[in-house]
């Protein structure tokens, strides 16, 4: 039972063919990510660190199925989901993008939480959806903003809304791409508490972060270095690992 990458290799496609002229630099080969083995068990928190451009977001996009590896497999609770439709991933894995605005598309905050459910479920289940949405709004302190446009919220509010929207599905695993970037101390505190709760309820979390305030929560730390997913060490055993 885990969200697992096994012997995965992903290479971004070559950019569109460009006419080459004398004096042009040769186009560098596209970025490649390799991961021999990565496992995220339920009720654990794994943190991914690494320099800018080392492939953290690429790794997270592989974990949630947005990118399909050219080699290797993505397994969720033993099922091979490599190349499966995104909706199949979405039922088990929740993903919060590095840029929260990229995953908000409704016209109001409350609609953001309910719109997908309304498209996928029968009408008689809508009141139940509405209740879940209201509960999440209260939990995320967004009740006052319910009629506002998600595009006009502050970055921190967007981040909270994006996470709330993902939790509407109650996924078993969560992948968060730099969830604390741009948050103030109180919001980070709130995020830590929330992640702890989710973890205790049995969710497996993979948190991409540079934030020293989030790292103590994680049981394990994974580092990406120039596309190689390297050491997978318990943070307790080597707390200074991968610190610059």
């Amino acid at each position: 039972m885990a969200l697992k990458l096994s012997k995965v290799c992903y290479r971004y496609p070559e950019s569109a063919p460009q006419q080459s002229r004398a004096g042009d630099l040769a186009t560098p080969s596209p970025f490649t990510l390799r991961c021999d083995s990565l496992e995220i068990e339920p009720a654990t928190m794994v943190c991914v660190t690494g320099a800018n451009g080392s492939g953290k977001s690429t790794l997270s996009r592989l974990l949630c199925g947005i990118l399909t590896p050219q080699a290797g497999a993505v397994l969720i609770d033993g099922d091979d989901l490599t190349g499966a439709p995104l909706a199949a991933f979405g039922r088990r894995v929740g993903y919060v993008f590095q840029e929260p605005a990229h995953q908000l598309f409704a016209t109001t905050v409350i609609e953001e939480l309910t719109c997908i459910g309304q498209l996928t479920t029968a009408r008689r289940e809508h009141p139940c959806l509405q209740q879940r949405a209201e509960a999440l709004l209260r939990r995320f302190n967004l009740s006052d903003l319910r009629e506002r446009s998600p595009q006009r919220l502050s970055h921190g509010e967007q981040q909270r809304l994006a996470l709330a929207a993902v939790l509407m599905q109650e996924p078993r695993y969560l992948v968060l791409d730099e969830p604390s970037s741009g948050l103030d101390a109180a919001s980070v505190e709130f995020l830590c508490q929330l992640l702890n709760e989710l973890c205790q309820q049995g969710a497996g979390c993979c948190v991409i972060t540079h934030d020293p305030r989030l790292r103590p929560l994680c049981g394990r730390e994974v580092t990406t270095v120039a596309g190689e997913v390297c050491c997978s060490t318990p943070t307790a055993a080597c707390p200074d690992k991968a610190r610059p």
Binding site: L86, A87, G90, Y95, F97, H102, Q103, F105, I116, M168
Partner: peptide, 13 residues
């Protein structure tokens, strides 16, 4: 990204 986010939230087109 929006399209992917939508599908990841359980929408199967």
């Amino acid at each position: 990204d929006s399209l992917a986010a939508m599908q990841l939230r359980g929408l199967d087109f």
